[in-house]
Amino acid sequence: MRGMTVIVKTVSSWVKVLIFLYGVYIVVFGHLTPGGGFAGGVVLASSYVLLMLAFGREFVEQDLPLALDSKLDCIGAFAFAMIAILGLVFAGSFFANFLYQKYLPGEPLRLISAGTIPLSNIAIGLKVGASLFLVFFSLSICRRGKGVTFDSPAGQEQE
């Protein structure tokens, strides 16, 4: 997979920044406008999928190695669970919105509001984006039509 023509490469190297920024916007403003962690995470993943389709797999592998990607996936899931446990510690119940109830009420319809909801959005966005990119990467590795030449996507971390 050596990538596409120079026109596609040039355009996608410009557009990928905008797509990534749009994904970050959707994730961060998820508690005020339509969107949220799920949609924003898929947009973040699709910016890297665009890179992979235009430049080939090896280019993306230098930019975002598989080991880093699976670490990001785990960090997202861990952060979401930690937010829930912090609610248990500070406010007495699992998934309690302790920041909004006690420490940082904020002002409605502003970016700093809603306590733990933006933090949970960021964690969910990280998790969804990283895991969808991971599965797309795995699918693109085994691409031979027939035969058994399926490479090991997880082999790099294991050994």
Binding site: L139, C142, R144, F150
Partner: peptide
């Protein structure tokens, strides 16, 4: 889809 790809292989 990964099951399908694997079965096809």
């Amino acid at each position: 889809i990964s099951v399908c790809v694997r079965v096809y292989g």
